[in-house]
Simulated scan of single mutants.
Amino acid sequence: MADYTIREYEDVDYEVVRDIFVAGMSEYVPSVCLHLLKQPWIQLTLVCLFCILLLSSKSFLLPVLAVTLLLAIGRQLLVYVWSTYIEQKLKEDLLDIRKTYMESKGSCFWVAECNGIVVATVAAMPSEKAEGELRLKRMSVRRAYRGGGIAKALTRVVMDFARQNGYTAVVLDTTVVQHEAQRLYERLGFRRDGAAAAPMLLSDVVNFVVYPYRYDIPHGELKTQ
């Protein structure tokens, strides 16, 4: 693994930062599909449909084709919903990164470079839910550069930023399919803080939940401004 450096965001990074976000989020489509297929009611629906068509048509091919078509339609619907979510985020905090993070008090955005190429991102801003908490956002590492400690280093940068700016905790959200991210945060001392439905279409129905995590900064490590 080549050496990497972490620095604050610059305007020249704008397009690559957005590309990294889109690529990272798009990678979760197969995992989300697998998660949906594991839901008992979806499995029951597919089995019932297969059996009904098999009994009514006396043909094995028809129910196979019908279930395959239904799965293909479902995947396309998921891709549409997921793409809509990504586009929404691109129009929110990632539309004007400098204004959102670099020019806002208590916020910042960092990138990791490897051989002069930006390969990872992370951001932090004050939590909208609780005063004194810093929210970690937009953590993403290009696939080819994972496993070298970049995500861990970026997380620690955010934790140090929180200490230096007097925050009492770092908080973040992960989805039910982000297993690697959950293991990373837990190794760094974060603890899971409940669960909630994801802010997406039909998330309650398909059991697609968000796991909040938090890291409470020891009082002795806080630096007052």
Rank of each mutant, 00 (worst) to 15 (best):
A123C: 14
G106E: 08
L78W: 07
T45N: 10
P40R: 01
I73D: 11
M139S: 04
K105N: 12
D93P: 01
A124C: 08
L77R: 06
K38P: 02
R143F: 03
L95D: 11
C51T: 14
R135T: 14
T168G: 14
Q88F: 07
R143H: 06
Q88Y: 10
G116I: 03
I73Y: 11
G74P: 06
L154N: 02
G116N: 00
S107I: 09
Q39I: 10
E133P: 00
P40S: 11
E92N: 14
V47R: 09
L34A: 15
A144V: 09
R138K: 00
A66S: 07
E131M: 05
L37T: 07
W41G: 12
I97Y: 05
T155R: 02
E87N: 15
S31H: 13
D160H: 11
V67T: 07
W110K: 04
L94Q: 07
D96V: 04
S107E: 00
L62H: 10
A162N: 01
E128I: 05
H35Q: 15
W82D: 12
R143M: 07
L37D: 09
A144Q: 15
L55N: 03
C114D: 07
S31W: 10
S107W: 03
G74D: 04
L95G: 06
L44Y: 10
N165E: 07
L53H: 12
P63Y: 06
G116L: 04
I117K: 15
L37Q: 01
S31P: 08
A120I: 10
L95K: 14
F50R: 02
T121R: 03
K152W: 11
W110R: 04
R75E: 14
I52Y: 02
Y167E: 03
I117E: 15
K152A: 13
S127L: 05
E131V: 04
A66L: 01
C108P: 09
E131L: 11
W41R: 11
V158K: 02
I117F: 13
L136E: 02
P126E: 07
D96P: 05
K89C: 08
C33G: 10
I86F: 06
T68G: 13
E113A: 10
G116T: 14
V118D: 05
N165P: 01
Y145C: 06
K58S: 13
Y80R: 09
R163S: 09
D96H: 01
D160I: 10
T84Y: 11
M102L: 13
M139I: 11
G149Y: 13
L49C: 06
K137Y: 13
W110I: 04
K58G: 00
A72C: 10
C33M: 15
A120T: 06
S127V: 03
L69W: 02
R135S: 14
L36Y: 04
A120S: 02
R163D: 12
L78R: 03
F50Y: 13
W110G: 06
L36P: 00
